[in-house]
């Protein structure tokens, strides 16, 4: 099979964990590329599960999921060659004193074969990626000694420095303050515009990336809605997922969702 125009596609996908928990069921959608996709939904709605299944890290219980038309189980290698992945931050082990620059280099060296020596180009691109998220001055610091938001920025830099047509980021904005958030969003926006790359970003808050995102996938263990950000910002859809507290407000021609956990003050 060769690469197709369909970036992200799922057919009757079910994912079940060994403990019997059905994390995803009846997942069907099709999104054309290139795109900037946001996967949203409350905690436990299966966002990380969807992404991991697409990467072949989890096996579908039923159905299929594909990236670029490559099946997650049968053509895993083709997918992984094209992807740069940032797992949810708590999946990174902080017991190892790796330097910031080594974490970023990891994104490039993982795509090489052993002995994975860093060339001067690798180092230059890694430093440039750190500059994009304003972390270049801390390149020598041990990664575990950074603050949560700083670590998140370094992980985004790791994805920016690497190669591959798709950036897959699991909650890159988790635990970041407004400043870090803006920096990450800005870096992703510029990178997406200047390069021929697609982005799939898991987030439980769409608002910070609202104007950047082209397609939204709203999950609650199955697909609740797919479409443009404003079409997903439908009060009925959102209340189905986030409960009666969800409100939709309009601001500068865009619709934003307001829930208790995102709060109104940020958009006022």
């Amino acid at each position: 099979m060769t690469e197709s125009d369909i970036l992200f596609k799922s057919e009757n996908l079910w994912v079940k964990y060994p403990n019997g928990e059905v994390a995803l069921h009846d997942v069907d959608f099709e999104i054309e590329g290139p795109s900037f996709i946001a996967v949203i939904g409350p905690n436990g709605s299966g966002k990380s599960t969807l992404v991991k299944t697409a990467l072949g890290l989890l096996k579908p219980y039923r159905g299929h999921i594909s990236l670029f038309g490559f099946d997650s189980m049968k053509e895993t290698g083709e997918i992984r060659r094209r992807v740069r992945y940032v797992p949810q931050r708590d999946r990174i082990d902080l017991n190892i004193p790796m330097k910031v620059i080594d974490i970023v280099l990891m994104g490039r060296l993982l795509k090489k074969s052993p002995p994975r020596i860093a060339s001067s180009k690798d180092k230059r691109l890694s430093m440039e990626a750190l500059e994009k998220v304003n972390m270049d001055e801390l390149w020598k610091r041990p990664f575990p000694e950074l603050s949560g938001g700083q670590r998140q920025r370094v992980l985004v830099a790791r994805a920016l420095a690497s190669e591959g047509q798709l950036l897959l980021l699991d909650e890159p904005l988790a635990g970041t303050d407004v400043e870090s958030q803006n920096m990450i969003v800005e870096a992703l926006r510029r990178y997406h515009e200047e390069n021929d790359v697609s982005v799939i970003m898991v987030t439980h808050d769409l608002n910070p990336v609202h104007t950047l995102v082209q397609d939204v996938l709203l999950l609650q263990n199955t697909v609740i809605g797919v479409g443009t950000p404003c079409s997903i910002m439908d009060p009925e859809l959102l209340q189905k997922v986030y409960g009666p507290d969800a409100r939709v407000v309009e601001y500068a021609g865009h619709r934003y969702c307001v829930t208790r956990d995102s709060g109104i003050d940020r958009h006022a």
Binding site: L57, D93, L109, P114, P115
Partner: peptide, 22 residues
């Protein structure tokens, strides 16, 4: 000596290492 990077990568970020094709 040959595989220390791989051993470190596996320890730091198993899922990321897999997903990047290692």
């Amino acid at each position: 000596a040959v595989f220390n990077k791989e051993f470190v990568y596996v320890s730091v970020d198993m899922e990321g290492s897999l997903a990047h094709g290692m």
